[in-house]
């Protein structure tokens, strides 16, 4: 899970889930706490789905 997707592609990550921002990949301080947590839950679910998806090559699971 990363914000700068090209870096993850360059270093060879196979399942890549784009995130929010460099200092808070899994959050957003501008949101109220409950909404921020909801956003985090959504992103983690996306990562879980990625882990459960067969891939043959490097794959970016776009938003």
């Amino acid at each position: 899970m990363c914000t700068v997707v090209p870096i993850s592609v360059t270093v060879g990550a196979n399942r890549i889930v784009p995130t929010v921002a460099i200092p808070y990949p899994l959050g957003d301080p501008s949101l109220p706490p409950e909404e921020e947590k909801g956003l985090r839950r959504k992103l983690v679910r996306k990562a879980l789905d990625a882990l459960c998806t067969e891939v043959a090559e490097q794959t970016v699971f776009t938003k």
Binding site: P23, L26, G27, P29, L48
Partner: peptide, 22 residues
């Protein structure tokens, strides 16, 4: 990177809260 947001709530970097709930 600017550590302010992570230092307030590190779940923003390591999503322990939601993973534990799941």
């Amino acid at each position: 990177y600017d550590p302010v947001y992570a230092n307030i709530d590190l779940d923003r970097v390591l999503p322990v809260d939601v993973v534990k709930e799941m």
